[in-house]
Amino acid sequence: SQTQRTQDENEARRIAEEWKRRGYDVEVRNRNGHWEVTWD
């Protein structure tokens, strides 16, 4: 799996939607004030 971090929730949601469209299983988490998008 791969993880991308961002400070911006909207960006995190956009990234998550992009990977979901490509057929990946995606998880979005808030950790210590930043957002992590993990896909595999």
Score class of each variant (00 low, 15 high):
24 Y>H: 06
23 G>P: 00
5 R>M: 13
30 N>A: 08
28 V>I: 13
37 V>R: 00
32 N>G: 11
5 R>I: 15
16 A>E: 06
5 R>Q: 11
27 E>N: 08
31 R>G: 06
21 R>N: 12
39 W>H: 07
20 K>G: 07
14 R>P: 00
36 E>A: 03
19 W>P: 00
15 I>D: 02
16 A>K: 04
24 Y>D: 01
33 G>E: 05
23 G>D: 02
12 A>G: 02
18 E>I: 12
16 A>F: 05
37 V>W: 01
5 R>H: 10
39 W>C: 00
19 W>K: 08
6 T>L: 10
28 V>L: 07
31 R>W: 11
14 R>V: 08
14 R>M: 10
9 E>A: 07
13 R>Q: 09
33 G>R: 02
21 R>H: 09
11 E>W: 05
10 N>H: 12
15 I>W: 14
27 E>I: 14
3 T>I: 13
35 W>M: 01
30 N>S: 09
18 E>D: 09
11 E>V: 06
15 I>Y: 05
6 T>Y: 15
11 E>Y: 05
26 V>W: 01
8 D>V: 03
21 R>Q: 12
32 N>F: 09
14 R>D: 08
24 Y>R: 05
4 Q>E: 09
24 Y>S: 02
20 K>V: 10
24 Y>E: 02
14 R>E: 09
29 R>T: 13
37 V>S: 00
20 K>A: 12
39 W>V: 10
26 V>A: 08
40 D>Q: 15
37 V>D: 01
6 T>R: 03
26 V>I: 05
17 E>G: 06
33 G>Y: 02
18 E>S: 07
14 R>A: 12
7 Q>T: 13
25 D>I: 14
17 E>Q: 08
30 N>L: 14
28 V>W: 03
13 R>E: 06
32 N>Q: 08
10 N>D: 13
1 S>H: 12
27 E>H: 12
36 E>K: 02
40 D>N: 15
3 T>P: 08
23 G>W: 01
31 R>Q: 11
7 Q>W: 11
40 D>E: 13
12 A>I: 03
40 D>G: 15
38 T>H: 10
18 E>W: 13
11 E>T: 08
40 D>V: 15
34 H>V: 15
38 T>I: 12
37 V>Q: 00
36 E>R: 02
38 T>S: 11
34 H>F: 15
20 K>F: 09
8 D>P: 02
36 E>I: 10
4 Q>A: 12
23 G>S: 01
30 N>Y: 15
15 I>R: 03
17 E>F: 07
13 R>V: 08
27 E>K: 11
28 V>Q: 01
31 R>S: 10
4 Q>F: 15
29 R>V: 14
20 K>N: 07
35 W>G: 00
17 E>D: 11
21 R>C: 08
4 Q>R: 09
32 N>W: 06
15 I>E: 02
35 W>T: 01
19 W>H: 04
2 Q>N: 13
3 T>G: 06
2 Q>K: 11
29 R>G: 05
13 R>W: 13
16 A>R: 03
1 S>T: 13
5 R>G: 06
16 A>T: 03
23 G>Y: 02
30 N>G: 05
38 T>P: 01
37 V>I: 10
26 V>N: 01
33 G>A: 03
12 A>W: 02
20 K>Q: 10
31 R>Y: 13
39 W>D: 01
24 Y>G: 04
2 Q>R: 12
40 D>M: 15
25 D>H: 14
36 E>V: 09
1 S>N: 10
40 D>S: 15
13 R>P: 01
7 Q>I: 09
21 R>D: 09
3 T>W: 12
11 E>A: 07
7 Q>L: 11
6 T>G: 05
21 R>Y: 05
33 G>L: 03
12 A>V: 03
11 E>N: 04
30 N>K: 13
30 N>E: 14
18 E>Y: 15
4 Q>S: 08
10 N>T: 11
9 E>L: 07
19 W>F: 11
33 G>F: 02
13 R>M: 11
38 T>G: 03
9 E>N: 02
19 W>I: 07
25 D>V: 13
10 N>V: 11
10 N>M: 12
34 H>Y: 15
25 D>G: 07
22 R>N: 06
27 E>F: 10
8 D>W: 06
20 K>M: 11
4 Q>H: 15
40 D>I: 15
22 R>E: 06
34 H>S: 10
20 K>Y: 08
26 V>H: 01
10 N>L: 12
15 I>S: 02
8 D>Q: 04
9 E>V: 05
26 V>R: 00
32 N>V: 04
12 A>T: 01
31 R>I: 15
9 E>H: 05
36 E>C: 03
22 R>S: 05
37 V>E: 00
34 H>M: 15
9 E>S: 03
35 W>K: 00
14 R>K: 12
18 E>A: 09
4 Q>Y: 15
5 R>N: 08
4 Q>P: 03
11 E>H: 07
37 V>H: 00
39 W>F: 08
25 D>E: 12
26 V>Y: 02
35 W>N: 00
17 E>S: 07
39 W>M: 08
27 E>V: 14
34 H>W: 15
28 V>C: 04
7 Q>Y: 11
27 E>P: 01
37 V>M: 02
26 V>G: 01
31 R>C: 09
10 N>E: 14
39 W>A: 06
35 W>F: 05
35 W>E: 00
36 E>D: 04
16 A>P: 00
29 R>M: 09
36 E>L: 08
40 D>P: 09
1 S>W: 15
22 R>I: 06
8 D>F: 07
17 E>N: 09
29 R>I: 14
6 T>K: 03
16 A>L: 03
24 Y>I: 05
6 T>W: 08
10 N>I: 11
38 T>K: 09
34 H>D: 08
11 E>K: 04
32 N>D: 14
18 E>F: 15
34 H>I: 15
18 E>N: 07
22 R>W: 07
9 E>Q: 06
3 T>N: 05
8 D>K: 04
38 T>F: 11
37 V>F: 02
2 Q>F: 15
14 R>C: 07
27 E>M: 10
35 W>Y: 05
3 T>L: 09
12 A>E: 00
19 W>Y: 11
36 E>F: 11
14 R>N: 07
6 T>A: 14
19 W>V: 05
8 D>M: 04
32 N>L: 06
20 K>L: 12
38 T>V: 12
12 A>Y: 02
40 D>K: 15
6 T>Q: 03
14 R>L: 10
34 H>N: 09
14 R>S: 09
26 V>E: 01
23 G>E: 02
40 D>H: 15
37 V>L: 05
26 V>K: 01
20 K>S: 10
5 R>E: 08
7 Q>C: 10
24 Y>K: 04
10 N>G: 11
11 E>I: 07
36 E>Y: 14
35 W>V: 01
33 G>T: 07
14 R>I: 09
32 N>K: 05
38 T>M: 09
32 N>A: 08
25 D>F: 13
1 S>K: 13
2 Q>W: 14
29 R>A: 10
36 E>M: 06
5 R>Y: 14
16 A>G: 05
36 E>Q: 05
1 S>G: 13
38 T>W: 11
15 I>F: 06
23 G>M: 01
17 E>C: 08
26 V>S: 04
39 W>S: 04
7 Q>G: 08
12 A>S: 02
25 D>N: 15
16 A>Y: 07
15 I>Q: 04
33 G>V: 02
17 E>W: 08
14 R>T: 09
26 V>F: 03
33 G>K: 03
1 S>M: 13
38 T>A: 08
5 R>A: 09
1 S>E: 10
5 R>S: 10
10 N>Y: 11
12 A>D: 00
24 Y>M: 05
3 T>D: 04
23 G>L: 02
9 E>P: 06
21 R>T: 09
8 D>R: 04
16 A>I: 03
30 N>Q: 14
39 W>K: 05
27 E>C: 14
33 G>D: 08
35 W>S: 00
3 T>K: 06
31 R>N: 13
22 R>M: 11
34 H>E: 12
31 R>D: 10
5 R>D: 05
1 S>F: 14
21 R>P: 01
21 R>K: 14
34 H>K: 08
9 E>W: 09
25 D>A: 13
2 Q>Y: 13
15 I>T: 04
40 D>L: 14
18 E>V: 09
22 R>Q: 09
5 R>F: 13
6 T>H: 07
28 V>P: 01
4 Q>W: 15
19 W>D: 01
20 K>P: 00
10 N>W: 12
